[in-house]
Amino acid sequence: MDKIDPQQTIFYSIEKAIKTYRQYAQKNLSARLPGITVDQLLILSLLEVNPEMAQKDLASWLFKDHASITRMIELLVKNEYLSRAVNPQDRRKFKLNISDKGHDTLQELKPIILNNRQDALAGISEKEIKELFITLNKIINNCQ
């Protein structure tokens, strides 16, 4: 029987690229502001773009389970990056608000985020990036 080597698949390379980028990004973020994670920063960024985003939507966008998002939000509240209030439309839900410290942190880290992306995409043309988006979206659609 032929052996199946996972390292010889595109999926292995995609996963490795994502993990390598996240480690690189975390190292650079931690050098500037220890104690905040890539995922926590993604939560703040998503809420900055869409302030009404619900916790379940954050979980979906970040490919995390509800318990993981809840823990991350707890840490963001504890460290004063976010505040939580009862949602007036649905008292079972919370309204998440980015604090002044959270906004300041996003502004402080924005150049690092942009530099991380620029470094990771160095030597890759716009055409190659567009083709990669198309290819990845085909894989996504094939699996849904």
Score class of each variant (00 low, 15 high):
Ser125Phe: 10
Thr20Ala: 14
Asn28Cys: 02
Leu82Asn: 01
Ile139Asp: 09
Ala59Tyr: 03
Leu106Asn: 01
Ser68Lys: 14
Glu74Ser: 03
Trp61Asp: 15
Leu58Met: 14
Phe63Gln: 14
Ile134Asp: 11
Gly35Met: 06
Glu108Cys: 05
Gln107Met: 08
Asp57Thr: 12
His66Phe: 05
Gly123Cys: 06
Gln7His: 10
Ile36Pro: 00
Glu128Ser: 13
Leu29Trp: 00
Arg92Asp: 04
Asp39Ser: 06
Leu44Met: 07
Phe133Arg: 14
Ser13Met: 08
Ile4Trp: 07
Leu76Arg: 01
Leu47Val: 07
Ser99Gln: 02
Leu33Lys: 08
Ala31Val: 02
Asp100Ser: 07
Lys130Trp: 10
Leu33Ala: 12
Leu42Tyr: 12
Leu132Cys: 13
Ile10Cys: 11
Thr105Asp: 06
Ile4Thr: 15
Gln26Trp: 10
Leu132His: 12
Lys95Asp: 11
Leu29Glu: 08
Asn116Cys: 04
Asp100Glu: 12
Leu62Asn: 02
Gln118Pro: 04
Ile69Trp: 01
Ala54Gly: 05
Asn141Cys: 02
Tyr24Trp: 09
Leu42Gln: 11
Asn97Glu: 14
Asn137Trp: 12
Lys19Pro: 02
Leu33Ser: 10
Ser60Asp: 14
Leu109Phe: 09
Asp65Gly: 05
Lys27Asp: 15
Ala25Phe: 13
Pro88Ser: 06
Lys95Phe: 06
Pro111Gln: 02
Arg71Ser: 05
